[in-house]
C-alpha cells in the first residue's frame, strides 16, 4: 500500500475541517486542533487503478493568537492551501503561508483550495487574480463544504501531482 502525508494549511475559519469531514475516515475529534494543533484524517484515493492512502494533517488555522506549527509539515509529500473565497485576507495569508511552507519543506506539490464557492454573493476574490495564479502554474480548485463540490477533485489533483512528480 502506498501512503503519503499531506498537510492542510490556511487561515483560521477557512473551513478546512468542514470541507473534508464528509469525505474522510476519522477517529479524532476537532478538539485536537485546538489542543495539539493538528487533527489527522485518512482519505483513500484511487488513481489509475492504484489505491493510495492520504494521511491528512489538518493543521490549526493561523490567527493572531496562534501560528501554524511548522514542524508538523516535516515529511509532507504535498499540501493543500485553503482560502476562504469570501475573505480576501485569507488569500494574502495563503501567499505568506506558501512561502513559509516552501522554506520549511522545500518545493512539493500543492493545490490552492478556494472554499465557500456556494457563497457567490459574498465572493471577494477577482477572477483575474485567479487567472494570474493559474498562469503562474498554481493548481486552483473551487470547493464548497456545504455542497461537497470540488472536494474529490482536490484529492484527485493532489494525488496526480504527487505521483507524476
Amino acid at each position: 500500500m502506498l501512503q503519503k502525508k499531506v498537510c492542510m494549511v490556511g487561515s483560521f475559519a477557512t473551513g478546512k475541517t468542514s470541507l473534508i469531514a464528509r469525505f474522510v475516515h476519522s477517529i479524532f475529534s476537532e478538539k485536537y486542533q485546538t489542543t495539539v494543533g493538528v487533527k489527522i484524517d485518512k482519505k483513500t484515493v484511487n488513481y489509475n487503478d492504484k489505491e493510495l492512502n492520504l494521511i491528512l494533517w489538518d493543521l490549526y488555522g493561523e490567527d493572531e493568537f496562534q501560528k501554524v506549527r511548522m514542524s508538523y509539515l516535516r515529511g509532507s509529500s504535498a499540501y493543500l492551501l485553503v482560502v476562504d473565497g469570501t475573505r480576501r485576507s485569507t488569500l494574502e495569508k495563503a501567499f505568506n503561508l506558501q512561502v513559509k511552507v516552501e522554506e520549511t519543506i522545500g518545493k512539493v506539490p500543492f493545490v490552492l483550495v478556494m472554499n465557500k464557492s456556494d457563497l457567490s454573493d459574498e465572493w471577494e476574490i477577482d477572477i483575474d487574480e485567479i487567472n494570474d495564479l493559474t498562469q503562474r502554474g498554481w493548481n486552483i480548485v473551487k470547493t464548497s463544504a456545504k455542497t461537497g463540490r470540488g472536494v474529490e477533485e482536490v484529492f484527485q489533483t493532489i494525488t496526480k501531482k504527487m505521483l507524476e512528480e
Binding site: 501512503q3 475516515h25 477517529i27 495539539v36 489527522i40 494521511i55 514542524s71 509532507s76
Partner: peptide, 30 residues
C-alpha cells in the same frame, strides 16, 4: 513523515485505525 510502515496487534485487542494513531503519535512527539 509519521507514516505507518508496519503494525502488529495481540489477539483480542481492540484497536483504532493504526495509520491515524501512528500519525498522531508523531504529531505528539513534534
Amino acid at each position: 513523515t509519521g507514516l505507518l510502515l508496519q503494525h502488529i496487534v495481540a489477539p483480542q485487542v481492540a484497536m483504532q485505525d493504526p495509520d491515524l494513531v501512528s500519525a498522531m503519535l508523531t504529531a505528539i512527539q513534534d
